[in-house]
């Protein structure tokens, strides 16, 4: 008996049972059977044909009109068959695309991976989570001589185009002699590169800073990036870390303002992307004060634990669905 005969027989059995005693159980069995049919890739019009065949068998005296009506139904089903087969094909295509994105995402991970460097005076914590598979947020640490530089950037535009832009920035940054660089000059350089190379609707926000352990000074500059926070241990107060500047890529001639801050023992520099401040809870957008409150809650833990805990709480508040890439970095001066 061929597979088709087996199916026909089974369908006939189920249908006969149902016609004799219209029970819910049989209907349920009918549904489960359709699952089997789908597994065998039986199309809608095949099923109608099966039905016709079985009905012929069960009711050889079926009226002419009844029989003809089934032929009509068969024709109508062909359209559904079209849609069904296209759906199958598109699903296969989608699976293929998904695995291609996986490959691209892991490639990006490898290329853009920035190790969090060990740095004597500082306890560094980093969390960076993409909303989609590829991250539009970018952070980079570079140890150069005695100093540590840190950059956080956000490309406007999500998904694959954004991430490709990010790769471009990383390579631009890696090839600039950073020891000589002051953050505001680095931004000026980068701005020119970006302006010439991105689509007119794209722009990049960025914050760049350099910590010099001898002077305990943190030099920084910003290009339209969401302000971070600065925690002043002596006052036990959090302040906004303002670094005003125009986003990268708008105008070739933009200049950036250099800022600096003295970092004392116990102080923290907190950098973030707007995925943090764009968290939406049931009550609406999260306020910056709430983010500060969260940091304060975990403040005494090591930096990595602080950022992870803050992320987990915000993630939970949003129902575990990120609206935007989320990046949070904390530098705490230990000695």
């Amino acid at each position: 008996m061929t597979a088709k005969d087996a199916l026909t027989e089974r369908y006939q059995d189920l249908l006969s049972v149902y016609l004799k005693a219209k029970t819910e159980t049989t209907l349920y069995k009918g549904q489960q059977f359709s699952r089997k049919l789908l597994e065998q890739q039986i199309s809608p019009e095949d099923l109608v044909s099966l039905h016709i065949q079985v009905m012929d068998e069960l009711f050889p005296d079926m009226s002419e009109e009844m029989r003809d009506s089934f032929d009509f139904l068969l024709e109508a089903m062909i359209g559904y068959g079209f849609a069904y087969r296209e759906h199958q094909s598109l699903r296969d295509k989608q699976q293929q695309l998904e695995s291609e994105i996986e490959v691209a995402a892991s490639m990006q991970q490898t290329l853009l991976l920035s190790d969090v460097p060990e740095f004597d005076q500082l306890d560094i914590g980093v969390v960076s989570v993409p909303a989609k598979k590829m991250n539009g947020d970018y952070y980079n640490f570079v140890k150069s001589g005695n100093s540590l530089s840190v950059a956080v950037a956000d490309i406007i535009g999500k998904g694959i185009p954004a991430a490709l832009c990010m790769s471009m920035i990383k390579y631009a940054m890696d090839s600039l002699p950073e020891e000589q660089m002051k953050p505001h000059l680095l931004l000026e350089n980068l701005n020119r590169v970006v302006e010439q190379n991105v689509h007119s609707n794209m722009f990049i926000t960025m914050f760049h800073g350099v910590y010099e352990p001898e002077s305990h000074k943190f030099y920084y500059a910003g290009a339209g990036h969401e302000p971070g926070f600065f925690y002043h241990a002596k006052e036990d107060e959090f302040h906004d870390l303002i670094a005003k500047g125009l986003v990268l890529g708008v105008s070739r001639t933009t200049t950036y303002h250099p800022y600096e801050k003295m970092i004392e023992v116990g102080d923290m520099v907190i950098l973030l992307s707007d995925g943090v401040t764009e968290c939406r809870t049931s009550k609406g957008f999260i306020e910056r004060e709430e983010v500060v409150a969260l940091i304060r809650k975990y403040m005494d833990l090591p930096s990595q634990k602080i950022v992870e805990n803050v992320f987990q709480e915000l993630d939970r508040l949003q129902g575990f669905e990120l609206r935007d890439d989320f990046t949070l970095i904390i530098l705490k001066r230990l000695v």
Binding site: G79, F82, A83, R85, E86, S89, L90, K93
Partner: peptide, 19 residues
């Protein structure tokens, strides 16, 4: 290509005929 349609139909077109 699947999904491409000029007549706004669902699933028909040449890929449908091919299948």
């Amino acid at each position: 290509e699947d999904g491409y349609t000029t007549s706004g139909g669902l699933g028909a077109g040449l890929p449908g005929v091919k299948r």
